[in-house]
Every structure is written in structure tokens, then in C-alpha cells.
């Protein structure tokens, strides 16, 4: 009994002693910091994704507090709501940025884009892309090893085993841009996010000539330019055999979708225009 008591007391004494030492050490070496940084950090989502350009939310909070003008700082995860809250707390004007979502601009699924060789190296898009054109005849398309999926901290990307392509869940995507940086083929783009996650975009990034595109992939943009002509808003441009829809000018009229001969212009969460309407136009 005596031994037990002695042990317990010794342990307690040790604990108290350590606490006292820790207390003084902590006081002695405390770093003076603006307490608002802690507060702002709490308001941020805490994902530490790096989407703002800082290593983590702490860095962003520090910048938000210390910078006079915070219009260049934006947390894509928290969005406008979060930024407004932080700005009003700090008494600064909130940065404005429209909502965006990651968009995978390659439609070269396994069925559309046959494999022409077998890659046998490390399963990484970056490694494969720095070695050669890729497993298909298209040197621009998705490599398919999911570097984008690996960097997504929000679980918004997944590889579709049927198509061999990554798919974005717009509900989970925070437009942090990690996948955009990770893709060695620069296929993923942050595009304006419409209500209901509606979207119209060219799902191809190939600058090859039409014949080469058609040989490699059934879903590629062949640069025919029909979409450019049909667009009533001048939102579509053609550069080096590739059409691009400017998300700022596009109004989702969908005329281009019906015009595209290869189906490279993709429509999501929207019904296509009735075909006869287009025919009337022609």
C-alpha cells in the first residue's frame, strides 16, 4: 500500500513540476502574434489545400490580416461567403471572384481513342508524359494515370474505369486548382460555374490537324470551325486547329453543340437543343 501511494504521489509531483516548467518556458518563448490571425484562420475552411497560393490556411490568414489590400487574395474553397465574412471582420473590402469548377477537357475514352502501345513504367501521368506521347495516337489527350485524382484533397475527382478518364464532381470541387497544376497535359481548366452545374465546353485540347485527330480519336476537335460560325455571341475562337469557348462570353445557347461533327463540344446537366431547330437555321 505504501509503495503504491509513493508511486502515485511521485507521478503527481512530476506532473505538476513539468506543468510549471512548461508554463514558464511557454511564456518566455512566446511569439507575439496578431490575435486576429487565429480568428481569421478559424473562419477559413481549414482544408490546407494550397488553392490560395499559400502553404496552408495559416499562411493565408496571416496574409489576410497583414496585407492592406486583400483584393488579390481569394480562398476558392470558402468562396465568396467566406471571403465576405473575413473581410467584414477585418474591416477591409472583400475580394470578388466568380464561382468556378474544374473541367476535364478530354473526351478520349477507351472506346473513342484506341490504345496503340502499352506503358510499363511508374504509374504517373507526369512520368509518362515526360517520356513520350502516351498510350494512344493522341499526344495531347489524357494520360489516364490519375495524377489529378491523387492531388485532390476534396475527393472531387475520380477515375472512371469505363472511360479511363477523370470525372469531376462539381458539388465537391472547390476550384482550388491543384488538379490543374498536376495535369502534365494541361487538360483541366477552371471554368465558370453556372447554377445547376450546367456547362458547355470543348472537351479536347489537341492542336493536331483534323486528319490526325480523327485517326487517333473519335471524340476530338478537328478544328473545322463550324462552331465559331454558329456562335451568336462570338464566344468561340479557333487557334491552331482547336476551338475554345470563352466561359465569360458563352451564354449556354448550345447551338455549337449540335453543329459539332465529332461531339467534341460537351454539354452537361442540360438538355440539347432540339435538332430540327438547328436544321431550320441551316
Amino acid at each position: 500500500m505504501e509503495v503504491l501511494l509513493f508511486t502515485v504521489l511521485t507521478l503527481c509531483a512530476l506532473g505538476v513540476l513539468s506543468a510549471v516548467v512548461l508554463y514558464f518556458v511557454a511564456r518566455r518563448f512566446r511569439v507575439e502574434e496578431d490575435p486576429r490571425i487565429d480568428e481569421v484562420e478559424k473562419m477559413l475552411p481549414g482544408a490546407n489545400c494550397g488553392g490560395c497560393g499559400f502553404a496552408g490556411c495559416r499562411g493565408m490568414a496571416d496574409a489576410l490580416v497583414t496585407h492592406e489590400d486583400i483584393s488579390a487574395l481569394y480562398c476558392p474553397v470558402g468562396g465568396a461567403e467566406c471571403m465576405n465574412r473575413v473581410a467584414s471582420y477585418l474591416g477591409k473590402s472583400a475580394p470578388v471572384k466568380e464561382a468556378q469548377t474544374a473541367t476535364v477537357r478530354c473526351g478520349g475514352a477507351c472506346a473513342q481513342r484506341p490504345r496503340t502501345n502499352t506503358y510499363d513504367g511508374a504509374r504517373s501521368c507526369a512520368v509518362a508524359a515526360s517520356l513520350y506521347a502516351g498510350e494512344t495516337g493522341c499526344a495531347f489527350g489524357c494520360v489516364g494515370f490519375g495524377d489529378c485524382v491523387k492531388v485532390c484533397t476534396f475527393g472531387a475527382l475520380r477515375m472512371n474505369p469505363q472511360t479511363g478518364l477523370p470525372e469531376v464532381d462539381p458539388e465537391k470541387c472547390t476550384a482550388c486548382g491543384a488538379c490543374v497544376k498536376a495535369c502534365p497535359k494541361h487538360i483541366i481548366e477552371l471554368r465558370k460555374r453556372w447554377p445547376g452545374n450546367r456547362a458547355v465546353y470543348v472537351s479536347c485540347v489537341s492542336h493536331d490537324r483534323g486528319a490526325a485527330v480523327m485517326k487517333a480519336c473519335k471524340a476530338g476537335c478537328i478544328g473545322c470551325g463550324k462552331c465559331v460560325k454558329v456562335c451568336p455571341f462570338g464566344a468561340i475562337t479557333l487557334d491552331k486547329n482547336l476551338a475554345y469557348i470563352d466561359p465569360q462570353k458563352c451564354r449556354l445557347c448550345r447551338k455549337c453543340v449540335n453543329e459539332c461533327p465529332t461531339g467534341a463540344i460537351v454539354l452537361s446537366n442540360m438538355k440539347p437543343l432540339p435538332v430540327d431547330k438547328v436544321q431550320v437555321k441551316e
Partner: peptide, 12 residues
Amino acid sequence: LPLLDWIRLGKQ
């Protein structure tokens, strides 16, 4: 292991 595959990427 694909050691050099990764090292080359790191070197680049």
C-alpha cells in the same frame, strides 16, 4: 521499384 522513373521526374 521504378526508382529512376521518379528520380528523373524529381530532377526535371
